[in-house]
Design a binder for these strands. Structure first.
Length: 863
DNA sequence: GCAAGGTC
């Protein structure tokens, strides 16, 4: 039998292209976690059967084991030495299982992952999943190196298969571990420290990261420049002359001076002279070059500055354009096209467009240019329109982005813009002046990208030595102005320059600092730091400025490059870098009061924030409800914080108290029209009094046990108290038909009475418009559900003779069963006794010079 | 509730 060859690409679209090229389109495709394309062909000169499939980016991502997931129980400093685990990035898609199945019976594995470090790392993830042995690399495991998905590159790569590069893969492993440990340790520490003290921070988490923090640093740096800016007064003047009907204001070669008397003296010299004399004229042919191909960073910059679309939105829109086939792959660093690129067919696809079709047809008829040489990062070709589209097909914002991509592409193959620049120079009273004219001879690409056009400025003819009368020389006073807040587009440039983030992640980091409430996007998409953002950066600056400088990223990159080049072992680099960061972390903790002093000046303490809401069961005083994220209760006299469920509203619940601890109950209503409402006791929610409750509201679903973290806890609907009228025992009606939970009466759902499941999102609407619906404490003899009592509305009662009171089982009683309706899920059927379905409820790190007294602030620079 | 990197 011919040997089988499994080939794996980084994304489904590449697998399709590779299979199509190698099979000449004669392949069969079947579905799986990702599509699998099969065909017969030649492999290393022999007949072989090919299977081509793909992953979807990284198969795994790193995290801490569950033991370290509890914020309260883990000391962040321990994270530096904690083990890490690799978990499937997208467990639902079962990529690992898919690869393992497809690898069965295959003799060869050919890796077609993108040709960068991340791709090399994914190669090794794939090897791991397929079950091929690592020491078969170069033998049965081969790597295809290609810089574009073109016929030529694919065939050349196939003829020149190499070994996967383990060192590059290990470099990425190192980065993952360092980023995780450093980011999570700092984030947990500062979140707990500041959220435990201040009530109006308005951020659910106060995060730190080697990309997001320097990104914020750029924004704060600019705003500090603005705040400390001292305006200066300056003076200038511009003689007015009239020539052949042109009213000209000549520019002073000195531009401006900062001393009034000096300016006035110059002005007088010029005024006294009465005329200006032409001292010279020059004419120069200038060229404004057509653009290179469009890469992600440049697209994001234009989208932000010219289209008013944020990077995050732009990437989402671009992603949609890509998946629908309107543009090529939108995440690329390259601005150069491969030599074989077919520009003509791209143009042909655009020639019917009502806006730019004409320009395209002229290019096709008269010959188009190749784009200016850009840089080839070896990833994907520049972002290029693929299919023609109309505004109706895409919708407004997507259309505007597509429109730009088209205009840019057509610009790249259009002629350069050519113009003549004329400069005329003058003298008066010893002072020099000039004026400039521009005349466009070839509009070129600027006719399709009009915002790049060169202004036409006509000047009259002058002759050397000519003297022209000065009409007016007014002294003008001006003021230097501070720079504006950093624009998104400027921020993207800074990030690119300092190597912060990648084409795929730059927008994520910017989005992060917005979502964490560190910056706000103001008009003109300028980023204004909030008090929180500014205070954080100022804090890092006074404790350890390295923490927020951009070189923290380049430091890490530099270190892991040593691994990628095979110069230092992975384990040594990781240990060394983590050791340094651990020192920085310890120093940060030690000096946190310096940062705290800044917080104190800016924010109010928990005691000063919030409004009085409900009584504490311990001291019987009112506790404060702090509504800013994360919403919580704070007892001033006990100095205790009680976490609450998030993303909803909290109010006092009828001044009822919990029979267990005397805390007043509060009512939480989830946001959204179908949002559940439920009561909870603040104390029980945070410290569930009964053992064996492993389903907590809002808890992470990890293994079988729920974790009691912030925002997770036991509301009354999970409470097994036998007699309290809010517990699941008294309010529960029947087993949930969709999961192992219980359907509970929503106590405040009147008049749209309903039951909701205390575990999943299943909901059941009860007879509508009833005055009252309550549980009775009696059980249905047939199905063990709770008998409910309904007090129907007099006008709408379904009962004979206008009777209103009725009780029964919603499953067994015909009348009640006919009045209920399942909201989420397929069917609501009667089930037997028991709830048996589904899951049960249930160092040898190298330190430089061996010195223990290194100042951790300085440990990066001189490495 | 945490990082940054792939991709959707």
């Amino acid at each position: 039998m011919a040997p089988r060859v499994l080939m794996v690409a980084e994304k489904p679209s590449i697998a399709l292209s590779i299979a199509s090229e190698l099979s000449n389109g004669r392949m069969s495709t079947r579905r799986g976690s990702t599509d699998v394309h099969e065909f017969d062909g030649l492999f290393q000169g022999y007949h072989a059967h090919f299977r081509v499939t793909s992953v979807i980016g990284h198969v795994f991502s790193v995290d801490f084991p569950s033991k370290y997931q509890n914020w309260e129980a883990t000391d962040p400093v321990d994270l530096f030495h904690a083990p890490i685990v690799k978990l499937e990035s997208n467990p639902k898609v079962h990529i690992c299982r898919h690869l393992s199945q497809e690898a069965r019976g295959c003799t060869y594995l050919v890796l077609w992952l993108d040709c960068d470090r991340e791709g090399e790392n994914i190669c090794h993830e794939v090897i791991q999943c397929t079950g091929f042995s690592e020491n078969e690399t170069g033998d049965r495991i081969l790597r295809a190196r290609f810089s574009s998905v073109t016929e030529k590159d694919i065939l050349v790569a196939m003829e020149n298969l190499v070994k996967p590069n383990k060192d590059e893969a290990l470099a990425v492993d190192a980065r993952q571990e360092i980023d995780l440990k450093v980011g999570v340790a700092f984030t947990r520490f500062q979140t707990r420290y500041f959220q435990g003290k201040y009530g109006n921070l308005d951020s659910r988490v106060i995060s730190y990261g080697p990309c997001q923090t320097p990104t914020l640093g750029f924004c704060v740096q600019r705003s500090m420049q603005i705040m400390t800016f001292k305006p200066e007064i300056f003076w200038s003047f511009s003689p007015s002359v009239m020539k052949d009907g042109y009213d000209l204001h000549l520019e002073w070669d000195r531009n401006k001076v900062f001393d009034h008397d000096v300016a006035a003296m110059f002005q007088k010299l010029v005024l006294d002279h009465n005329y200006v004399e032409v001292t010279g004229m020059s004419k120069k042919e200038e060229t404004k070059g057509r653009p290179c191909g469009l890469n992600t960073v440049n697209l994001l910059k234009v989208a932000s500055s010219a289209l008013g679309l944020g990077p995050h939105t732009s990437m989402q829109l671009a992603e949609r354009l890509y998946t629908q086939g309107f543009i090529s792959y939108p995440r690329t660093e390259s601005t150069a096209y491969p030599a074989s690129f077919d520009f003509k067919s791209v143009l042909v696809a655009q020639q019917a467009n009502p806006f730019w079709g004409n320009h395209v047809r002229i290019l096709l008829a008269q010959g188009f240019h190749k784009p200016r040489i850009g840089s080839d990062a070896g990833d994907h070709p520049p972002i290029t329109p693929m299919r023609a589209a109309t505004e109706e097909m895409l919708g407004n914002d997507t259309w505007r982005l597509y429109q730009y991509i088209c205009q840019h592409f057509i610009g790249t193959v259009s002629p350069d813009c050519k113009y003549t620049r004329t400069k005329v120079e003058f003298i008066a009273g010893g002072e020099l002046f000039h004026c400039v004219g521009q005349h466009v001879s070839t509009k070129g690409f600027t006719s399709i990208m009009p915002w790049m056009a060169v202004d036409e400025k006509n000047l009259p003819e002058f002759t050397k030595g000519e003297k022209i009368k000065i009409l007016k020389v007014d002294l003008q006073e001006g003021r230097t102005a501070p720079p504006d807040y950093l624009s998104e587009s400027e921020l993207i440039s800074l990030m690119e320059k300092h190597g912060i983030g990648t084409d795929a992640s730059i927008s994520v980091h910017i989005n992060n600092i917005c979502e964490r409430n560190y910056v706000q996007v103001n008009s003109g998409r300028r980023l204004v730091p909030t008090a929180l953002g500014t205070t954080l950066i100022r804090g890092y600056q006074c404790i350890d400025v390295d923490l927020c400088l951009p070189d923290i990223r380049s430091f890490i990159e530099h270190q892991i490059t040593l691994i990628a080049k095979g110069k230092v072992k992975h384990v040594h680099v990781v240990q060394h870098v983590l050791q340094q960061f651990k020192q920085k972390f310890s120093y940060f903790i030690k000096k946190i009061e310096n940062m705290d002093a800044l917080f104190e000046a800016q924010f109010s303490t928990l005691a000063e924030s919030g409004r009085l809401l409900s009584k504490c069961g311990k001291c019987t005083r009112y506790m404060k409800f702090i509504s800013t994220q994360p919403a919580r209760l704070y007892c001033i006299s006990c100095e205790e914080v009680y976490h609450l469920p998030q993303n909803g509203s909290i109010k006092l619940y009828k001044e009822l108290t919990c029979p267990l601890d005397g805390f007043e109950l509060v009512l939480f209503s989830m946001s959204g029209s179908d949002g559940k409402s439920f009561p909870l006791c603040p104390y029980c929610y945070n410290c569930p009094p009964f053992e064996g409750i492993d389903t907590l509201f809002g808890a992470m679903k990890l293994g079988n046990s729920a974790k009691l973290g912030k925002g997770a806890g036991m509301p009354c609907f999970l409470c097994p108290h036998p007699t309290c009228r809010h517990s699941v025992i008294t309010q529960g009606v029947c087993a949930c038909p969709e999961c192992s939970g219980t359907l509970v009466l929503d106590p405040v759902s009147s008049p749209k009475w309903r039951l909701y499941c205390n575990t999943c999102n299943c909901m059941v609407s009860l007879p509508q418009g009833a005055h009252r619906i309550s549980t009775t404490g009696k059980k249905c003899p047939d199905c063990d559900s709770s008998i409910i009592e309904v007090d129907f509305n007099k006008k709408t009662t379904p009962l004979p003779d206008g009777a209103t009171l009725y009780s029964g089982c919603i499953l067994c009683d015909e009348l009640l069963h006919s009045l209920i309706e399942m909201k989420h899920g397929k069917s609501f059927f009667r089930r037997g006794r028991g709830r048996g379905r589904g899951r049960g409820r249930g160092g040898r790190g190298r330190t430089r010079g061996g010195s223990k007294h290194e100042d951790p602030k300085m440990s990066f620079r001189d490495f």
